[in-house]
Amino acid sequence: MEPRISFVTLAVRDLAATRTFYVDGLGWAPELDVPGEVVMIRAGTHLILSLWDETHFEAEVGAIGRGDGVPPFTLAHNVASREEVDSVLAEARTAGADVGAAVERDWGGYTGYFADRDGVRWEIAYNPGEIGQSVLPGPSAD
């Protein structure tokens, strides 16, 4: 098996509100939009963010575990500068996200987080290192 992720699927409580956040708020364009069921958005050349109504998700995948606290994963969106980190966090705040302040990291980067309507944490990161630069769009991107 190749080391590759093709889809990131998130089960959401209110698909219409989640669609509004990502499509109207952040300006992302759906490639597939089935009201009440799923919204799929291209998030990279070979990556789709799939937002599923949780009832449909549970019918196919199984019961969702619930608990207190933050979901035990983050999604990351890398950008080319510290200023872009602040700009994206401001855009997310305008879209209705719960946004934390960006901070300088010990490893030389600059990152901040926002949470979407279901509490999924997105890290917005400027990573000046080789691995951080390798995931930015452009000639070195896949």
Rank of each mutant, 00 (worst) to 15 (best):
I124K: 08
A59D: 14
L32A: 04
G100C: 03
N127L: 03
L49C: 02
M40T: 06
P128G: 11
T18Y: 00
P128W: 12
G109T: 11
A92M: 06
N78S: 06
D118R: 02
A101P: 06
G44F: 10
V85D: 07
G67C: 08
R93E: 15
G108A: 11
Y110N: 11
W122T: 07
D116L: 06
M40A: 12
V38P: 00
A16V: 01
W52V: 00
V8K: 03
A101H: 06
L51D: 02
D24G: 01
T18I: 01
E83K: 14
I64M: 10
D106H: 06
L47S: 03
A43K: 04
T20G: 05
E130Y: 02
A95Y: 02
E130H: 03
H77L: 15
E60G: 15
R121N: 13
V79Y: 03
R4V: 14
N127Q: 03
H56W: 03
L26Q: 05
G62K: 09
Y22K: 05
R117E: 08
D24T: 11
V120S: 10
R93P: 00
H56K: 07
D98S: 13
S140P: 02
V70Q: 15
R117Q: 13
R93Y: 03
V120H: 15
D118F: 04
A141S: 11
W122K: 04
D106M: 11
A43T: 04
G36Y: 02
R66I: 13
A11I: 08
A90W: 07
L75Q: 09
I131L: 13
G96I: 10
M1R: 08
G109Q: 09
G129M: 11
I48C: 05
D14K: 04
A141P: 00
S6W: 07
V70N: 13
A92I: 06
V38Y: 02
